[in-house]
Amino acid sequence: MRNRLPEWLRGHSPLRAATNPVREVLGDLHLNTVCLSAQCPNRGQCYGEGTATFLILGNVCTRRCRFCAVAKGEVRAVDPGEPARIVTAGRRLGLRHMVITSVTRDDLSDGGAGWFAAVVRLIRQELPGVTVEVLTPDFQGMPEAIGTVAAAAPDIFNHNLETVARLYPAVRPQADYRRSLELLRQVKRIDPQILTKSGLMVGLGESGAEVERAMDDLREAGCDFLTIGQYLQPTREHLPVAEYVRPEVFEAWAETAYGKGFRYVAAGPLVRSSFHAGAFRQLAR
């Protein structure tokens, strides 16, 4: 039985009617979003504000991270019409900042890097003035794949560290803490003008000192932006919540992160990687 949520996590989503325009566009264009696939607690609010985070390369992941609600199993072939439909969605929704993420596709030779690059370039071509943020998997650390996405010059290159080093075997058994840091480091080596971003989940059993150490490691890798949010257990099969972190602790972590040199920090119980990503957009222009 999952723990009862504390008061500060019992949010209220907008009425479904307010989210219908976004749902209709996504449905008409047969597009996936991480908002829905990952059971994001903010999807009602984001849809109500006319935004969404596009999930490319299907909605089935090849990895089995123990915190993530995205489906695992047999993946499908890449849909050749997907980039054009994403551009159409951006135009119909009037988006000024578009966030593109994906499932992890270890079955593809480049991990899907070429697909990210194709989507970014098409947005640049068809929607001038729109800023683009990518939230990528680790591409198994392949330098060529990371370089492919960086060469498309997204305004923000996001790759989530997710948790502290000690918890990787339990939380992200097919990932590697140092490999994720090296990805962010490599992006900066390729193009120092690309703003890099990463995110942490808390409430998995980490200590405050470990969170600060992760901040230090991210800054050493040149990371510009940071998000910190509360882990919420999607189903009974996923990792349990070890602690519900109080809002004032997030506020303190944000202050600490700014002190370490991050250019923008979003920290709070319901903060997610792409939540209110438009705020980061102001620094990306």
Rank of each mutant, 00 (worst) to 15 (best):
V70L: 02
R236H: 12
Y258Q: 07
I156W: 01
L36I: 11
E206G: 09
E74S: 05
S198C: 00
H238Q: 02
P247M: 05
A257Y: 05
F250V: 12
A117W: 00
P173D: 14
R246P: 13
A52Q: 09
G73N: 13
R63N: 13
Q125L: 10
H238P: 00
H97T: 05
L15I: 09
D79G: 08
P234G: 06
G205C: 06
F280N: 00
T163C: 12
R105V: 11
P169N: 13
R43C: 07
T101V: 10
K188I: 07
F116I: 04
G73W: 13
L283F: 09
N160P: 12
L232P: 09
R281L: 07
R219G: 07
V211Y: 02
T53P: 04
M1T: 05
T131P: 00
R272H: 09
A69C: 10
P41R: 03
A89P: 07
M201A: 02
Q125T: 15
Q233G: 05
D28W: 04
V164F: 03
A17P: 02
A257N: 08
G208Y: 09
L183Y: 04
T131C: 04
M98L: 15
R96F: 08
P269C: 10
V78T: 15
W253L: 11
D110W: 07
T256L: 12
T33F: 06
E248R: 09
T131E: 03
F67L: 14
D138W: 07
V99A: 14
I86K: 00
C35P: 05
G50H: 06
Y264V: 03
R213W: 02
A266V: 00
E237P: 05
D216T: 15
R189T: 14
R105M: 05
K72N: 08
A77C: 06
W253S: 02
G259C: 12
Q230I: 04
A69S: 14
A152Q: 12
K188E: 09
S273I: 01
G50E: 09
Y231L: 07
Y231G: 04
C40A: 01
S109E: 15
K188W: 11
